[in-house]
Design a protein around this nucleic acid. Sequence first.
DNA 1: CTATTGCACTATGAAATACATAGTGATAGG
DNA 2: CCTATCACTATGTATTTCATAGTGCAATAG
Lengths: 120, 120
Amino acid sequence: MSDDFCPVHAAIGVLQHKWVLHIVRALLNEPLGFNELSRSVGGCNPATLSQRLDEMVTLGVVAREVHSVFPPRTLYRLTPAGVALQGVMQAVENWGRTYIQPDPTDGHACLNQQEANPAV
Amino acid sequence: MSDDFCPVHAAIGVLQHKWVLHIVRALLNEPLGFNELSRSVGGCNPATLSQRLDEMVTLGVVAREVHSVFPPRTLYRLTPAGVALQGVMQAVENWGRTYIQPDPTDGHACLNQQEANPAV
DNA sequence: CTATTGCACTATGAAATACATAGTGATAGG
DNA sequence: CCTATCACTATGTATTTCATAGTGCAATAG
């Protein structure tokens, strides 16, 4: 029954949610509109993107700024808590660039065996 | 048609997959058996856990060691590429401990407003 | 002796999630 | 006039994860 709350467990729960890290990565460069963000993220359908953004706004890592209703112009921007995810993104980037490469056969992701299992 | 491969995009694809970060966190402490891992991760059903482990073994971040068939004893251990995710976990821990706390009303995750929007 | 527990999983069908695709209303550009 | 763009929503389908039960056998408890 002990419900001891673990902030790290909760943080993982947020960050593993599909598209969240992609959205953060896109918004770390600059605030973007919905369609710009959609293109930058690549491959997320609008219903899912909309839902995920709502959740991130509710949580407080993203802010939604309506600059004009007509012509429509909305900007999504990281809050300070969102910008603080830069450290996580940095670590992911380091890991990805070191260990991940395209599979020579099918182009899917696979590990760089040189780095993954360095010869002794 | 340009299929330019981005290792960071691919890394995010791996890490956002449900339970992956939880599994990595559990295995960073020590290698674990299937049921131990299941308990440590908490709440992942065995079919999903099995599938996720297979994928992680195929990718090369986890190694599956069968120590005895009977009585059954299998250990899951991070490979060097898996251990290298320590940096990512560290960053997630820092962020989580700084920004996430339980919601006073319902116990869900929410942001620590002190840290999220520091007074100017 | 028998009963229970624990090991590493697999099987099944139901529930939740994400998907592709189409469409909204108005306006700016060719 | 025709098309594209903005920010999304709607619909039905496909994928993913879920809860739950069960496998065979050894070791432990009673």
